[in-house]
């Protein structure tokens, strides 16, 4: 009997193909099967009828509104921040760089607790805000704050690296042509990085939409006020199972839409250095 490694070239190649196919199928099914199972758990009729469930509707509305606001704030503050951060050397830049990435590795529940310790009713800042009758924790605003904390790195990292990679010759040329820094930012820098910025924004939106841990800690789980879709899924699984599945399916569909959007945008040519 010949050993496998002494076998002719052809059969060794066959073995490699079989092995590769097995691994590809294994990984694909591991990731796809649970998601597919969601869709088979309830009938389409049941799915569509529970879409009009007030619990589903209020969670969907709250999630979309808060995620859009979070994204807007991240873009408005994050774009100029990332620009200045990537173009200027300042003391402590390394620390800021690390802090930007921190929420990516920090467990979201910890982020929520941290926000609560700072802004909660008896928190370091929260107790003073409380004197003026301002409450942050367990409000819709807290949902947005939690989402921004957890989701902003996706946009900031992307924007930072795009601005670092953009060939400075474009901006230099625009300056010699007499354009003001603001005009250059609007007509050269942003358009040349736009597709990358949008894909960063889409990822941020997706992360904000899926936020669970920090939200439940810092904002709680009040229907209509702080109960976003992921929280409603959690509640649904303990009570109205169909509602939980319906919202889960909605989140899967939105996630797919986001990934397709990022794929399309990422395939666009970015004129860099």
């Amino acid at each position: 009997m010949t050993r496998w490694f002494l076998q002719p070239e052809n059969s060794r190649r066959t073995l490699a193909v079989i092995g590769a196919a097995f691994l590809i199928i294994l990984v694909t099914f591991y990731l796809a099967l649970p998601v597919a199972a969601l869709f088979f758990r309830i009938t389409p009729e049941l799915f569509f009828s529970s879409l009009s469930d007030p619990e589903v509707q209020s969670a969907l509305r709250l999630s979309l509104i808060t995620s859009v606001i979070s994204l807007g704030i991240v873009i408005i503050v994050g774009t100029p921040f990332a620009y200045f951060h990537s173009r200027t050397a300042y003391p402590g830049k390394m620390i800021v760089d690390t802090l930007i990435d921190l929420p990516l590795v920090l467990p979201p529940a910890v982020a929520g607790v941290a926000l609560l310790v700072l802004y909660g009713r008896v928190g370091f800042i929260g107790r003073y805000l409380n004197l003026f009758g301002i409450t942050l924790a367990f409000t819709t605003l807290a949902v947005i704050m939690a989402q921004i904390f957890v989701a902003s790195p996706f946009y900031l990292r992307q924007a930072k690296s795009l601005f670092e990679q953009l060939d400075p010759a474009y901006e230099h040329t625009a300056r010699t042509l007499g354009a003001s820094p603001l005009r250059i930012f609007a007509t050269i820098t942003i358009p040349l990085t736009a597709s990358g910025l949008v894909s960063g924004a889409v990822m941020t939106f997706g992360r904000a939409l899926g936020e669970f841990g920090a939200t439940i800690m810092f904002a709680g789980n009040l229907p209509g006020v702080t109960q976003t879709m992921p929280l409603a899924v959690y509640v649904g699984m303990e009570g109205n199972f169909i509602v939980g599945i319906t919202i889960s399916i909605l989140l899967v569909l939105i996630s797919f839409a986001i990934m397709i959007a990022v794929r399309i945008l990422a395939s666009r040519e970015v004129p860099l250095a």
């Binding site: 060939d167 010759a169 474009y170 230099h172 040329t173 625009a174 300056r175 010699t176 042509l177 007499g178 354009a179 003001s180 050269i188 358009p191 040349l192 004129p271």
Partner: peptide, 20 residues
Amino acid sequence: PVEDRNIGYVLQNPSVFPHI
């Protein structure tokens, strides 16, 4: 400031704005 010097400057890398 650079933008007030009114210089026609053609750089080695011609940096024609690709998106317009």
